[in-house]
Design a protein around this nucleic acid. Structure first.
Lengths: 333, 333
DNA sequence: TTGTAGGCGTTATCAA
DNA sequence: TTGATAACGCCTACAA
């Protein structure tokens, strides 16, 4: 015996109680009664509904309207605080448009394969830095906006000016006098990380005398630590490290301590994201700040456009290098 | 012009295409055709449906069945990796029961007030360490299971043996010779933190010669750092700190460095959660490991019971102190 | 200004 | 084994 949500109070019940027609209740509940229902009656209906704790059945409403009023924010993992701000931004905009926002971690990186997804129980998908196959599987024909991701297929997207950010970061290191920079790449298959790698390579190539190397790193912290430690134990050692995100920078910090390298004197470190943790690290982390909140905000805005049948254009958000204490001139050897 | 999801292919379309009745399609799609539809026909229907990319309309199905097949995992914040494991556990069980799981951050701590929630678009709620009013607002009469939380009202819950964990932690400190322990409390209104505080106070009281003090701390990292720094600057200084979670321990680490206190020699630190970060911190953090995955798993199991009209009993999960390098005998003064 | 009726796509019942 | 048919609860023309 499965409990049915059907036993709830319906609009008809409210109508009977308030002595009006069911459609009157419907009109009032959906807020379209102006000029169709007497204010006094509308008021009575509203009070009755509140009394009876009436909530319109969303399934019925969706069926009738052909729209559910909620969208999915799909993210690669729940374990990165970065997405909290993305969610806030998107949720805020959603709120203004009566759109509920719900989060779905599409962690197909994990062993268990993708979890069951609420396919058409939603009107649209905000896909944030997912692997391409996950994005496709999730959206399945629904209005879709890509966050921190792009596709060649004209799907609207909101991205960061990562190229500029990387340029700024490398320029910062170059000015300090660094010549050998290691790029600690996130070992996750997402466009954004490929772009970062390309930007890094380009930027290094543009600067004669600078050499870059690359280390692909698991994004799980303990494994990242091991990987980084192995790399930094080798010679020649880079004098600076550019990390794909602040969590990886954490791993680099840990590796540095264990190897007896002091940051920033023996090793400069730059991250990406500017998570809250960046200011608390020792020393405070120089990092490329990504406007996560705006990413979510503009993404939801674009999705709203899409939902209304209008074209949504893509946007790119400026980033900024936050110079803190993890970068300094390299030690003279 | 709002795009309607209605333009999708319906069961009737599939039926027409496959030359069968619509109900046959329905039967096959819901997997209840055994003994009612000829296998050959069922197979044809399945292939036709796949060809036409038919997906049953969830709104219609929910309306008819009175059940949506998805539940909500409500968490206080997206920015704590702890909840990632809770989600994994719950999602895994949900999968086995064809229940989709979706995450909702009920961050009513933030300025903007609670975001719009997908009220009856769901069958049940797993509320994890929320404030009471948030839990109530979200569940609104739906089947509800509390995670890491309890209520006096007989709502089924899954919790941790926090008392035992705290006892173990304090015993560990006592054995090392600590006499003055500071409890860094999470400044968030949730039952679990109240329980931790009570357990801490009780445990200290039980041990003659030990004194405890308490510091309520914002859970946002930079603010936590400030608060802890102020507290640790005062004298007498505790020789050990028990933190409500690993993030707060992070803040304590940062404060210690800034104050020139070495961990563990001048300050021992214990956390709660055993996040991945705990092993990467310097020194690795001694912490009470909480089985987050099992929390989610048992919670979903209980919710499944509830959904089927059976009573669900509450459970309490064992925790274990992971002794690492952040605790040591206090320095002699 | 109010009420009536039709239908959204499914599932379940029942007769064929 | 199959095919009509009646709900599920709501929204919205349209009639009163």
């Amino acid at each position: 015996m499965v409990i049915k949500l059907t036993n709830r109070v319906t609009a008809t019940d409210v109508a009977r109680e308030a002595g009006v027609s069911q459609s009157a209740v419907s009109l009032v509940m959906s807020g379209k009664w102006r000029g169709r229902i007497a204010p006094a009656v509308a008021d009575r209906i509203q009070r009755t509904a509140a009394n009876m704790d009436y909530q319109p059945n969303l399934a019925a409403r969706s069926l009738r309207r052909g729209v559910t009023g909620s969208v999915l924010l799909a993210i690669p993992t729940l374990s990165n605080p970065f997405f909290a701000d993305v969610h806030s931004g998107a949720a805020r905009v959603g709120e203004a448009h009566d759109i509920g926002l719900v989060v779905f971690p599409a962690n197909s990186d994990d062993d268990p394969g993708p979890f069951q997804s609420p396919h058409q129980a939603i009107d649209g998908v905000l896909a944030c830095a997912l692997r391409q196959q996950d994005t496709l599987a999730l959206s399945a024909g629904l209005p879709l906006v890509l966050l921190d991701d792009v596709s060649g297929n004209g799907i609207p997207s909101v991205t960061f000016d990562l190229d500029l950010g990387v340029t700024e970061a490398i320029a910062h290191l170059a000015e300090l006098g660094h010549q050998h920079v290691l790029h600690v790449r996130a070992g996750r298959d997402a466009t954004t990380f490929h772009r970062r790698a390309a930007a890094f390579a380009d930027e290094i190539a543009r600067r004669p005398g600078m050499i870059g190397s690359e280390l692909v790193c698991p994004i799980t912290l303990p494994e990242a630590l091991d990987t980084v430690m192995r790399e930094l134990s080798r010679t020649p050692r880079p004098s600076a490290v550019f990390c794909d995100d602040d969590n990886l920078a954490m791993a680099v910090y840990a590796a540095a301590v264990r190897l007896g390298l002091t940051i920033p004197n023996q090793l400069s470190v730059i991250g990406v994201d500017d998570l809250p943790i960046a200011t608390v690290m020792t020393p405070p982390l120089t990092t490329i700040a990504l406007p996560a909140y705006d990413l979510g905000r503009l993404g939801m805005l674009a999705l709203v456009e899409l939902r209304q049948g209008r074209a949504a254009d893509s946007a790119s958000l400026p980033v900024s290098l936050q110079v803190r204490a993890s970068t300094a001139p390299p030690a003279v050897r």
